[in-house]
Design a protein around this nucleic acid. Sequence first.
DNA 1: GGCCGTATCAGCCAAAAGGTGGAGAGACCA
DNA 2: TGGTCTCTCCACCTTTTGGCTGATACGGCC
Lengths: 208, 208
Amino acid sequence: MSTISVLLVDDHTVVRSGLKALLGTQADIAVVGEAASGEEALEAAQEHQPAVVLMDLAMGAGMDGIEAIKQLRQRTPHQAIIVFTTYDSDADIVRAVDAGAMGYLLKDAAPEEIFAAVRGAVQGKSVMSAPVASRLFQQLRHPDEILTPREAELLSLLTQGLSNRDLGKRLFISEATVKTHLAHIYAKLGVETRAAAIATAIRREGMR
Amino acid sequence: MSTISVLLVDDHTVVRSGLKALLGTQADIAVVGEAASGEEALEAAQEHQPAVVLMDLAMGAGMDGIEAIKQLRQRTPHQAIIVFTTYDSDADIVRAVDAGAMGYLLKDAAPEEIFAAVRGAVQGKSVMSAPVASRLFQQLRHPDEILTPREAELLSLLTQGLSNRDLGKRLFISEATVKTHLAHIYAKLGVETRAAAIATAIRREGMR
DNA sequence: GGCCGTATCAGCCAAAAGGTGGAGAGACCA
DNA sequence: TGGTCTCTCCACCTTTTGGCTGATACGGCC
């Protein structure tokens, strides 16, 4: 069995250090590089040509993880990308998979789970944490609860605390249209008021 | 200089592993134990008698970090507790300090910052990340923006998406009183609508 | 005792949000 | 071509919310 080269991307030094220590215990896995931002990740992926990229989604300022994934897929499509993050929000999962992520792990994952994901990734296998899988499953069972792109956009602005009028101005649509979208969003989220929609969106959809 | 014994408390294996690796590079610091929950932390603190406890606030199910801090202060008051968490919400900071934390670090802190905090803690010095310090400073400069207990209680329910009527019923007060409290909350948070108040509360105050 | 902060309540009015029903245009697909 | 989805818009009406002013009551503090 040949060695699997891994690139770590996380803005937390502690997390990178921890992953390095854990992965270092495995004979068939070698960390060949680290990056603390999306920009650094692109460079490092080019330079070290890792087989697997372990990447956090939230990375402070600059390019976020999703964007980094997209660009990596374009530039070095042979590298498998595994998301390694704290949150399991629906929106993040879908966007990461859309962008081309091979796996989705949560930071509270057991070391064995991480090892398995890295080994699986090079064989083209998707590995994800149980909570993540169950969320995806949930979405498959209730496809009518998936927001349309426009609705998601509106919901995102809604969580900024904007009024219907402001939403209309921002999206260049009438207040009437805003209300229509909102009614659909409420139905899909299973709430009755904008207050509850915001609470649900921020907590469940991870719109922070 | 004698060795400083440290206990790590975090439900993420990766983070514990990372801290261990980083602290291991320092000759005067030794990790003597690890715990993945508040309950485990109390046991480990009793058993290993560390000089410093590095503790995460969010720990999945069971006892949360704040509660663990309080209990540690009672049982082993000679141990210095440093909070090591991802978030810098006002509410968390205040509660942690109230509970008896000596320091407050964010997970994106540089290794040197962590070392300094551990060394400072045994000498009775408070060390906190810059964003945390600036938040505390902010509160000192604007004491009139601190919510009263009743207002905080109401805001907490507000983030559940309740209407004024429901809030009144829940708190056994009239809708008029609810409106009065809300008006005060809006002023203190610097917002104009309930939507913005909810967004601010969940994001900034950490009411999740 | 007077002052201040907190919590409680009232009424009035304007603005915003939500519910209902309907409708047209464009995209996509079977 | 017909059906479905998405996005857009409108009118009408009810409910909710927010802004304003003012009031009472209790407890701590100087």
